[in-house]
């Protein structure tokens, strides 16, 4: 089996397409209104669920308003309108166990069918006067226990991200496989400079070509993701700008190669610039975006995406996707390499 890795690449990508696109999301809370409540009143919040089945076992539905330290207030009454919509009524005491006038509470809903879903810090409660002692005394401290887990293979639900969380299997692996492929290209350029082997240069050229292609795909998937989470395809974010510049550098590599007639000179100068370009890629993509304000996760003081949101089901698709894209990239590079070899042989004849 000489071509096992090509078959493997295709199979892995098919698996990521099926798993990544067909697996449903966990139940979540996509909307709640009003978002601002007042202490000392009985307030009703209308909640719109996502992928939820409120009508099944609606007697066992429970809901809380929760503080970060775990102190919670249970809903007094829950009226289920339909599968998506429920009305939660809370009797809020006149004083809150916090030392500020306005405090953000997390809304938590638990159902035996859907499992637990949260709206983190989404509900603001205002009190007229701050009285910590009275607030502690009045607060019921409802116990949150026996939360259910949805028993199915699902991806996490995140507000704002919603269904676009699936782009984690395309945008991010495309970037990572681009890095793997470009690193390979750089290594072959080094080998060329050390051994003067024309085939090493062809390999470097083919790999850089595919790296550029993966980079363009990565920036396009990123722009589409940005359209639905940041609001615009291109918002002149530092990460987007630096990425565009990195692609310009690799574009320059091909212009440079095209401007030489002599194949030996083309290979040598190309290899030198390829290594130089790779070295300037690291400050562009990883150092500069960390310093300035950015919307992108992992840049501008934002935490990276994987640390909080990548759960074990997502990892099952995410890691294979990196390998799959890298293998497909290698396949394309191999075809480019073989074409280049044939062209060079044609020149010799």
């Amino acid at each position: 089996m000489k071509y096992w890795w090509k078959i493997l690449g295709v199979l892995i990508l098919l698996y990521t397409f099926f798993m990544g696109l067909l697996t449903p999301l966990k139940t979540g809370i996509s909307e709640a209104s009003p978002l601002s409540l007042h202490a000392g009143r009985s307030e009703t919040v209308t909640v719109v669920g996502y992928n939820s089945f409120f009508t099944k076992e609606k007697e066992k539905l429970r809901a809380w308003l929760k503080l970060p330290n775990g102190k919670a207030l249970a809903a007094k009454r829950i009226d289920v309108v339909d599968d998506r919509v429920a009305k939660l009524t809370f009797d809020i005491p006149s004083f809150l166990p916090v030392d500020t006038k306005v405090k953000d509470f997390t809304l938590l809903i638990d159902s035996p069918v859907d499992g637990a879903s949260v709206l983190p810090g989404g509900i603001a409660v205002t009190q007229d006067t701050v009285n910590l002692a009275l607030g502690d005394a009045l607060w019921p401290n409802a116990e949150i226990s026996q939360l259910h887990e949805k028993e199915a293979i699902t991806f996490p639900f995140r507000n704002i991200l919603g269904e676009t969380i699936r782009n984690t299997y395309y945008h991010v692996p495309l970037w990572m496989s681009m890095f793997i492929i470009l690193t390979g290209g750089m290594v072959f350029s080094v080998i060329y400079l050390m051994k003067n082997d024309a085939d090493a240069d062809r390999k470097a050229m083919a790999l850089s070509n595919v790296g550029l292609l993966l980079g363009i795909l990565g920036i396009i998937t990123g722009a589409i993701w940005a359209r639905y989470t940041w609001g615009k395809f291109w918002s002149w974010d530092v990460k987007q700008n630096m990425t565009a510049i990195a692609l310009l550098i690799y574009g320059a590599y091909f212009v440079l190669r095209a401007s030489f007639e002599d194949p030996e000179k083309k290979a040598r100068v190309g290899a030198v610039f390829n290594i130089f370009a790779y070295a300037s890629l690291v400050p562009l993509l990883y150092i500069i975006p960390k310093l300035t304000d950015s919307l992108h996760p992992g840049a501008g003081g934002n935490i990276a995406f994987g640390s909080q949101d990548l759960d074990s089901t997502m990892r099952m698709v995410f890691y294979p996707a990196i390998i799959g894209w890298a293998l497909i990239g290698l396949w394309v590079a191999e075809i480019i390499l073989r074409t280049a070899r044939l062209k060079d042989r044609l020149m010799e004849v």
Binding site: M242, A252, V255, F260, V269, F273, F276
Partner: peptide, 22 residues
Amino acid sequence: IAAKADNSSTLMAILSFPVVIP
């Protein structure tokens, strides 16, 4: 690098500007 090629002034801008932006 650019001196090795023929149309060096164009290459100079193409090659150096992206690298110098950071």
